[in-house]
Each structure stands twice: as structure tokens, then as C-alpha cells.
Amino acid sequence: MSDSVLIRLFVNGEEHALAAPPQRTLLEALRYDLQLTGSKQGCDKGDCGACTVLVRERSATGRGEPILACITLAQDAQDLAIITIEGLATPAGLDPIQQAFADCGALQCGFCQPGMMLSARALLDRCERPSLPQIQDALSGNLCRCTGYTKIYEAIQVAAGLREPSSRAPVSSEKALPSDQVAYAVKELLP
């Protein structure tokens, strides 16, 4: 586009330079310019929290605080260090929050998960052993339209080491069959 501007974003420890229209939101830049589609586009007007990312001043330390990318302008986010869900895991493996969400089956449709996990990460960064009301308060800006909050709160308690996953949840040690074997097994059952 002829009236594009140069936008420099510091995302997940990497500097990116992109040309985009000046009204580009941070969420659009992440999803459509940087292909970081983990941040979800839900209501797109600051109600649902699906686009939550962590930001801090570039000079500051730590991961930062949760904000909403859908109502932040990309140009206005150039002085910030941004962490998206793609930047939560390390080469050593998943973040404990991600592992706990997997172990607890803390998802239904999964659309709210990236925002939930980033809000939860910010909570555990400032409070290692949160109470249930503190967890509920920290996640009050993230909506789950499947209403799967119970498992999500449980996952955060598991990540904080406050409890074990409840027994009915699938645990990571249960290995799923490879998908071709599943198809074969189904075929066998047919008359």
C-alpha cells in the first residue's frame, strides 16, 4: 500500500520490521504480518481477552503485564517488548502453565486458551501461590464461551503446585494411538 508506514515490533525476543497501514492494530500485525496466529481475534473490541499478550517497556525486566492487542495500535506498541503465546514455551519445553492446561484438559474449543494462559502466567509471575479468588480475579478479563472455567482454574492451581490434576482428566502419560492405527481399529470393528 502506498501509505504504509514502517513499524518495528519486538516480539518474543526478536526484532521485526514491517510495512503496514498506520491504523494497523497490534493484533492484526501479529496475526497477518508476523503470522503469529496464536493470539486470537475474538470480539475485536476489547471485551473478550482472546487477544491478550504480555508487554513491558523494553528497558524493564520480566515478562510484563497482560494487555489487549486488538485495541492497541501496532505503531503505539513499538516501545514495548511483547510476548505472545508462541513465546511462552522455551527450547527446554512447555511453560508449566501450558503443561498444566494439557494435563488437566483445561480446554473445550480452545479459542480462549492463549489469552487465558498468558493472563495466568502474569498472575503466577507476581504471585506464586494464588488463592482461587485471586485466580478468578486475574482471569476475569478472559471469557470462555464454552464456560470451561473450572478446569482452567484447576490447571492454574496445578501449575502453581497447589494440587494434582483431578483423576478424570486425561494425563500426559496416557499415550494416544497413532492415527493410522485408530483408523485400522475402526475398520476391524465394522461387519
Binding site: G46, G49, T52, E65, P66, I67, L68, I71, T72, S119, D137, A138, S140, G141, N142
Partner: peptide
């Protein structure tokens, strides 16, 4: 006022 993210912003 609002939720945690909006209060930060």
C-alpha cells in the same frame, strides 16, 4: 473498572 488487562491500559 473493567478487567485486569483494561485496567493496565
Amino acid at each position: 473498572i473493567a478487567g485486569p488487562q483494561l485496567r493496565k491500559m
